[in-house]
């Protein structure tokens, strides 16, 4: 359907629809937004709007060694996951897109399996496996598990980027004497780079926000931010978490905007 539907229904008669739709949108967005002003509260009570303002909960966040270490672990894991998942995902998407791959449907299903398999099963499974090969509570184990979860998003994003790209361009470059890698790097990559960046951003946020698998396989010195937040939420609701949440919301807005920007250029 296009901008103007041309249907003989006035906006007035649609008022109820717009009202319901707007209320549902508010339901989706307002709870997270309420956290932001509350994180600047001056008191230990969670009030909205806060009666006094301060940065004490941000100080509590940045000055706590535990929270800071957990944040660093999460950032490291997310950066490494992005660096591992993106090339693997791009390579797989390239092969899947070629159309010359036998069993392409099966391979696609394997690579995107982690979207369908219940996360709790992946968590228990990796914990069980890592216990035998000594990867629990290690950054390596965390990155491998997160890579598997980020892979489907990279593959799907890059595949959709390939859809608006004509592979013949790469063939032309190769027939003109460019090597395979050179043709891919100089002709194909510049044209699908926005979907590659979107895929990489997806991988980053998938790893950074991952909760369930991290609950099982991270701990000790490699406790992730999400794991520490989960435990903190089970015990008591400390306004420090409001400050951390606000930082996370800011991060997701930045990454989301970047993905939108790159997505539009595609």
């Amino acid at each position: 359907m296009n901008d103007d539907l041309g249907l003989p229904i006035s906006h007035g008669r649609r008022l109820w629809l717009y009202t319901v739709g707007a209320l549902v949108l508010l339901f989706l967005i307002v709870p997270s937004l309420i956290i932001v002003p509350m994180s600047f509260s001056g008191s230990t009570l969670l009030q909205f709007p806060p009666e006094s303002w301060s940065l004490r909960w941000y100080e509590a966040y940045f000055q706590s060694v535990e929270w800071r270490d957990a944040t660093i672990v999460s950032l490291k894991a997310a950066v490494l996951t992005t660096m591992v998942a993106t090339p693997i995902g791009v390579a797989a998407a390239y092969a899947l897109n070629s159309g010359a791959l036998r069993l392409a449907g099966f391979i696609n299903a394997v690579l995107t399996a982690s979207l369908i398999i219940p996360v709790i099963l992946i968590g228990i499974g990796t914990f069980f496996l890592y216990a035998r090969i000594g990867l629990n509570n290690t950054l390596t184990g965390l990155v491998l598990a997160h890579t598997v979860q980020a892979l489907p998003l990279v593959v799907l994003t890059v595949l959709s980027g390939f859809r608006s790209y004509d592979m013949n361009q790469e063939r032309v470059a190769r027939s003109l004497g460019a090597g395979r890698l050179a043709a891919f790097w100089q002709v194909t990559v510049p044209q699908i780079r926005f979907s590659i960046v979107s895929g990489a951003l997806f991988a980053f946020i998938t790893s950074f926000d991952e909760v369930v698998v991290s609950l099982f396989i991270s701990g000790g010195e490699t406790t992730t931010l999400t794991r520490r937040m989960f435990s903190a939420l089970r015990d008591q609701i400390d306004p420090t978490i409001a400050a951390i949440s606000t930082c996370l919301i800011l991060l997701s807005v930045v990454l989301f905007s970047a993905a939108q920007l790159f997505g539009r250029k595609r």
Binding site: L96, A100, L101, R102, V110, I124, T126, F128, L129
Partner: peptide, 28 residues
């Protein structure tokens, strides 16, 4: 040869999913 090369491009992903997801779930 081409099909094999393409399969090679997919293999890191397939191996990783095989080790981290399929193997433990099969074990369980």
């Amino acid at each position: 040869r081409e099909a094999l090369a393409l399969l090679g491009l997919c293999s890191p992903g397939i191996v990783l999913v095989g080790i981290i997801i399929v193997l433990p779930i099969g074990w369980l």
